[in-house]
Design a binder for these strands. Structure first.
Length: 427
RNA sequence: GGAGGAUUAGCCUAAUUGGUAAGGCAGCAGUCUUGAAAACUGCCGGGUUUGCGCCCAUGGGGGUUCGAGUCCCUCAUCCUCCGCCA
């Protein structure tokens, strides 16, 4: 959520940001907000005056009753009228407040100045790489679906029977490999990168979705259990960031760094037909997510650190990748700056997004009311929140299986995973 | 699922038959001190205002009342007990 003061003071900057995000159509919202803000201010003034009157006279009534001198009847009946007026005005005010809140919640975050201009994914800018690792792939490659089927380690068909398309099943050494990947990533981030491990709930309430910005803008992408008011998490970012919702964090404890494994659930509504094969687009996948809470002045250093932590995993696994900076037209509404890490898929002959590393600045913190006191006397400030996948296993598994396949159709397990799998080869 | 109790500021704790949130700790600044501690003084929830001030704020949301921390309804969370259950 944007600071209303920012919109009051520099509405033109906000509108310029909307244009950079290719959301110029929303510029009207800024003017609408300013209009509501103005009439709200007038109305607050009127109700405050009436409330001041009521408070003052109520004290007079109390005095009259206490001393028993004179009658309060006349004053009480006057205040009855005043209270009725206040009720009416308060109700109107509530309408304005709700309208403002709804508008504010739908406005996207500010953009960091380093975010490149651009209309779509095609305008994203290469930031790092490509980082190459040599693999002996001088034969006709199988894609991950063919490998998964022939080796009996992935079963998309039965997943579709049990749940529906996009719910993959890992079997035997495939299941073990998936678990090995998750454990390897968690261990690396906790042991080498200083993160505290969290195992969060996979179902959250609506306040949590609102806090991280998935609600209301991306409500249609989230699985919903209406009877209990719960939502399946699309990423561990939601429960982990919301751990500290409405908290005053101890300034000495910052920065806070969590890493969490979770299953992630996404409806992927409206994306039928593209990238639907196998792991390329699924409704449930596994992801290890890093989440950071920092002082505002440290958040852009933290962004680079999280990126390097995710890269460390790919380097250890020797999986080729590149890093791109998302342009204004492609970056998500919640992020102020975002890098995507894309892994190379030799069978698909293209890069696949495997990680997204974002700085949300104070956008989520303001929505979720996560603050700290920089020092004893100053006012509470919002922290900056960041997160990055480190990484999602589905697209990573595509690239891993393809790179580590052998000419005779087997899979060599990457060196660093062998302590976790207990075997060196699949097939 | 049922019964009872609890929720007050960063933390801890008060508030007559309903009369408009009192203190303490921690923290910050100052006085004092070679320095520190102690002591003393001030600040110490949010909004608005140049300022005085005014408004809001007792877990969330409603209601009764001139006036609600206090009474009523409802929801959430925690504790105790009962029931059910892996």
């Amino acid at each position: 959520m944007l600071d209303i003061n920012l919109i009051r003071q520099s509405p033109d900057d906000v509108i310029a940001m909307l244009h950079k995000r290719q959301m110029g159509g929303d510029a009207g919202k800024v003017h609408e907000l300013l209009d509501i803000d103005r009439s709200r201010k007038e109305m607050v003034q009127r109700t405050d005056d009436l409330k001041a009157l009521r408070n003052r006279v109520s004290k007079e009534i109390a005095d009259i009753k206490r001393t028993g001198q004179g009658s309060a009847e006349e004053l009480i009946s006057q205040m009855k009228t005043v209270s009725d007026q206040i009720s009416v005005l308060d109700a109107e005010l509530a309408v304005l407040d709700t309208g403002m809140e709804e508008l504010l919640l739908t406005l996207p975050n500010r953009l960091h100045e380093s975010v490149p201009e651009g209309r779509s994914a095609e305008d994203n800018v290469l930031y790092k790489g490509p980082v190459e690792f040599s693999h002996d792939l001088g034969f006709t490659l199988k894609n991950h679906l063919e490998l998964g089927r022939s080796l009996g380690i992935l079963d998309f068909e039965r997943g579709a029977k049990v749940s529906g398309a996009g719910f993959p099943v890992y079997v035997g050494k495939g299941a073990r490999l998936e678990r090995a990947l998750i454990n390897f990533m968690l261990d690396t981030h906790t042991s080498n990168h200083g993160y505290t491990e969290v195992f969060p709930p996979f179902l959250v309430n609506q306040d949590s979705l609102r806090g991280t910005g998935q609600w209301p803008k991306f409500a249609d992408q989230v699985y919903h259990m209406p009877e209990d008011g719960l939502y399946a998490i699309p990423t561990a970012e939601v429960p982990v960031t919301n751990l500290h919702r409405a908290e005053m964090l101890d300034a000495e404890k910052l920065p806070i760094a969590y890493v969490a494994y979770s299953a992630c659930f996404r409806r992927e509504a409206g994306s039928y037909g593209k990238d639907t094969r196998g792991f390329l687009r699924v409704h449930q996948f596994n992801k290890v997510e890093m989440v950071r809470f920092t002082r505002p002045e440290e958040s852009y250093d933290a962004l680079e650190q999280i990126l390097s932590h995710a890269e460390a995993i790919l380097c250890a696994l020797k999986i080729p990748y590149r890093v791109i900076t998302l342009c204004g037209g492609d970056i998500s509404a919640n992020a102020a700056k975002c890098y995507d890490i894309e892994v190379w898929s030799p069978a698909e002959d293209r890069y696949l997004e495997a990680s997204s590393v974002s700085n949300f600045e104070d956008y989520q913190a303001r929505r979720s009311n996560i603050r700290f006191k920089p020092d004893g006397k100053s006012k509470p400030e919002f922290v900056h929140t960041l997160n990055g996948s480190g990484l999602a296993t589905s697209r990573l598994m595509v690239s891993l299986l393809e790179h580590y396949q052998t000419a005779d159709g087997r899979i060599t397990v990457p060196e660093v995973l062998r302590p976790y799998t207990g075997f060196d080869v699949i097939g």
